[in-house]
């Protein structure tokens, strides 16, 4: 049987707020196949960010299991998680979180260098990625000089620098305008077509529409999990059909 890229068993997270236990995630069983693009949706406070943080080992689970490529990961300590992250997981955040002091090029090279790649190899990989994302001329710029969309593209390049098995993204377009969202969407679509496994928390239906599968959380539980079936009537002509679609 095919090992999934990632799966969880009865994953639970309970925060202690002022002595009171507040459950954020209440028993989630999620299976992400290799090459699959899974969108996680749900209203704010439904536990989707907590879930993706736990999947990346950024937050500890209260109980349950997390498996990455058939290996149990929830029992790892902080350092082991860090090493797992640098080898197998790329993370993209809502607020880009580029290291301000470093140039775009350094930001993108950092994970490769961290993973033990030679500076030459890291540079080649960075050049390739920035070229793919159309950012070659920004390589020596400081992150603060870039627009939000450009920053997020750099963050994406950074997350992909080590060719991770899984790309985790937490509201990657949550802080972008529609034009920048479109750019990032196109990129995500492309890397997915190249076989990248993606798990993404989003509130944006445009982003979720790209996914193979949408998982909907409500109050820390999965209430819906399924593929998006094609519409019965595919638009043939052009934008004019939109008006018809909307009736």
């Amino acid at each position: 049987m095919n090992t999934p890229a990632m799966h969880t068993v009865n994953l639970v997270k309970i925060y202690q707020t002022g002595g009171l236990p507040v459950p954020a995630v209440r028993g989630i069983d999620l299976r992400v196949e290799r090459g699959e693009f899974v969108a996680i949706m749900g209203p704010s406070g439904s536990g989707k960010s907590t879930l993706i943080h736990m999947l990346g080992g950024l937050d500890t689970r209260t109980s349950g299991e997390i498996w990455v490529e058939g290996k149990r990961a929830d029992t790892l300590n902080e350092s082991a998680w860090a090493i797992l992250r640098r080898q197998k997981i790329g993370f993209v955040f809502q607020f880009f979180n580029l290291v301000d002091n470093m140039t775009v090029a350094d930001n993108v090279e950092l994970p490769a260098l961290l993973g033990g790649a030679s500076p030459k190899h890291a540079r080649e990989r960075r050049e390739y990625l920035l070229c793919e994302l159309n950012l070659t001329d920004k390589a020596d710029a400081a992150p603060a000089q870039l627009s939000g969309g450009e920053q997020q593209r750099v963050a994406l390049a950074r997350a992909l620098a080590n060719q991770p098995q899984v790309l985790l993204a937490d509201e990657p377009t949550g802080n972008l305008d529609s034009r920048n969202t479109r750019d990032v969407l196109r990129l995500l679509g492309e890397v997915h077509r190249q076989g990248q496994t993606i798990v993404m928390v989003t509130h944006d239906a445009r982003v979720a529409g790209l996914a193979d599968r949408v998982v909907t959380l409500l109050d820390g539980q999965i209430i819906d999990d399924g593929a998006i079936a094609p519409t019965r009537r595919r638009p043939k002509g052009g934008a004019g059909d939109v008006v018809e679609l909307r009736g």
Binding site: R182, L185, R186, A205, R206, A208, G209, L210, V214, T216, I223, D224, G226, I228, A229, P230, T231, R234, P235, G238, A239, D241, V242, L245
Partner: peptide, 19 residues
């Protein structure tokens, strides 16, 4: 849930259309 999936499918069509 069914309605949401339908809307998302429409959304995907719209994204494709826009492209």
């Amino acid at each position: 849930n069914r309605q949401r999936r339908h809307y998302l499918a429409i959304m995907r069509d719209l994204v494709e259309l826009a492209q």
